[in-house]
Design a protein around this nucleic acid. Structure first.
Lengths: 232, 232
DNA sequence: TATCACTCAATACACTGTATCGCGATGAGA
DNA sequence: TCTCATCGCGATACAGTGTATTGAGTGATA
C-alpha cells in the first residue's frame, strides 16, 4: 500500500484542532450569527462551522434546535439589568421596559422567538421575579395585572418598531414615513380616497422618533395603572 | 412503437380534473391547513396537494411563499368588523381590540406572522383607517399615539395568551397555572427560594380567566389615554 | 394541417433538522 | 507492549423545504 504520495492524500483528519466546546460557546456563536444576519443564519451546520466542528457535534450539548433557540432567548434576558430594589413601582417598571426594548434592539431576532414557548429559563425567571418585586401593591392580582399590561405593551411596541425598521431596510435606506408611503402601491391606495384618516396621518403627522412614541405609549399604560392604584 | 400496453403506462396526464384555481382558493386552502395544524402545515407542496395540483402550479398565482403568508394575514384582517362610525373613541377602540383578539384566537398562526413585514394589504389598510377614524382627537399625533399604544398592547397581550395556550397544550391538557408550575423543573426553581414574588404569584394569585386579564390591561391603556385627553 | 404559445407537472438543486453508522483514537487489561 | 473495547465525532443518509429549469402535452391560430 501507499505507493500513493502523502501530499496527494487530502490531509488526514489528524485533529484539525478539536476545540473543547461547551454549551455557552455554542449559544454565543449562534447569537453572533443571528445578530449579524437574522435567524436564518442560525442553522446547526452554520453554528458548527463557526466553531470549526461538524453539525452533529452540537447534539452532544444541545438536544434540539428549539432548545438552542430557548437558550439564546434566556441569554438575552440575562443582559437586562434589574431595577433597583428601592425604586418605586413606576420608575421600576419604566426601567424594565427600557431594558427590554434596548435588548430587543441589540438582538432583533429576539422578538421573533417570543411566540414559540413561554420563557422559563433561569434568567427569564429572575427577570420576572425582579420585575414583579418592584411593584408592591397589596393585592398580588393587581401586581400581576400591572406587570402583565406593561410587558404586553412593551413586547407589542417593540415588535412594531422592529418590523418598521426591517421594512425601512428593505425599501431603500431609512426614508421618512411619508416617503415610504409614496411607494407606488401605497400612493395608489391613498389616491383612491378610501383612507382619508390614513392619508391625513401620512401628511400631517410629525414623524416623531420611535423612542418618543415608545415613551408616550408607556406613559399611557403607567398612568392607567396609577389611576387605579393611588401613587405609591 | 407502443408494443407496450396502455394499461401498463401510468395513467397519462389526461386531465385528472385540473380545477381552475385562483388566488383566493389558494389562500383559503392555506388558511384551512394553518388553522388545523399550525404554520408548519403550510408548504407549497401541501397547499397544492389540498387543491389537487402540483406545487409549481401555485407560482402562477403567488410569486413567493412570503407573499402567500401576506395574503393570509390580510384575509384575517378582513374578518375583523370595523367599529361603528358613531362610536366614541373608547368603545371604538375597545371594539377593535376585541376584534383583533377574537380573530387571532380563531387563527393562532396569525400572531406568528406579525413580525415579518408591515401589514399593508387592502384589508389591513381599511382596518387601520377605520381604527384611526374612531379616535377624533384634534391633534393627529395624539390619534396615532393612542391607536399605537392600544394596538401594541393588544398584539402583546394576544401573543402572551397564545403562547400560554400552546404551552398548556403541550404540557398535558389545560392544567391550572400553579399546576403547570409544579412541573419538576419549575418546582425545583421555586424551591431555591430565589423567586419569592414569583412563588407568591403561583400560590396566592386567583387564576383569573384570560379574557378578564385582557380586559383589565386594556382598561389600563384606555384610562391612561383618557387622563391625557379629557373624556369625549 | 402546421406552428406557436402557453400551461402545468416533473425534475433538479441547495438547504434544513436530525437518525444512523462507522472510523479512528484513546484508555484498560494482560 | 499488544490487544480489545469504548466512545466521541465526522460522514452519510433521509425526509422535508422553497424555488429554477425543463419538457411534454394542449388549444388556438395561420
Amino acid at each position: 500500500m501507499s505507493n500513493e504520495a502523502v501530499w496527494d492524500r487530502p490531509e488526514p483528519p489528524s485533529k484539525p484542532s478539536p476545540t473543547p466546546l461547551s454549551r455557552d460557546l455554542i449559544v454565543n456563536a449562534a447569537i453572533r450569527l443571528a445578530d449579524g444576519g437574522g435567524l436564518d443564519e442560525v442553522s446547526f451546520r452554520k453554528v458548527a462551522a463557526a466553531l470549526n466542528a461538524g453539525p452533529m457535534r452540537l447534539y452532544g450539548y444541545v438536544e434540539t434546535k428549539a432548545e438552542l433557540l430557548d437558550l439564546m432567548v434566556d441569554e438575552v434576558y440575562g443582559e437586562i439589568t434589574p431595577p433597583s430594589p428601592s425604586a418605586d413601582w413606576r420608575t421600576g417598571l419604566r426601567h424594565v421596559a427600557h431594558g427590554v426594548r434596548d435588548a430587543a434592539k441589540r438582538h432583533e431576532w429576539f422578538i421573533d422567538l417570543l411566540s414559540n414557548r413561554p420563557h422559563q429559563g433561569p434568567n427569564a425567571l429572575t427577570h420576572m421575579e425582579t420585575t414583579l418585586a418592584t411593584v408592591r401593591f397589596e393585592n398580588i392580582d393587581d401586581v400581576l395585572g400591572a406587570v402583565g399590561a406593561v410587558m404586553a405593551y412593551v413586547f407589542g411596541a417593540v415588535r412594531g418598531e422592529i418590523t418598521e425598521l426591517r421594512a425601512e431596510r428593505s425599501t431603500g435606506m431609512t426614508e421618512e414615513q411619508w416617503q415610504r408611503a409614496s411607494g407606488p402601491y401605497m400612493q395608489r391606495m391613498l389616491a383612491t380616497g378610501r383612507f382619508p384618516t390614513l392619508a391625513r396621518v401620512m401628511h400631517e403627522s410629525s414623524d416623531s422618533d420611535p423612542a418618543h412614541r415608545f415613551e408616550v405609549g408607556l406613559d399611557y399604560v403607567l398612568d392607567g395603572i396609577a389611576t387605579r392604584h393611588n401613587p405609591a
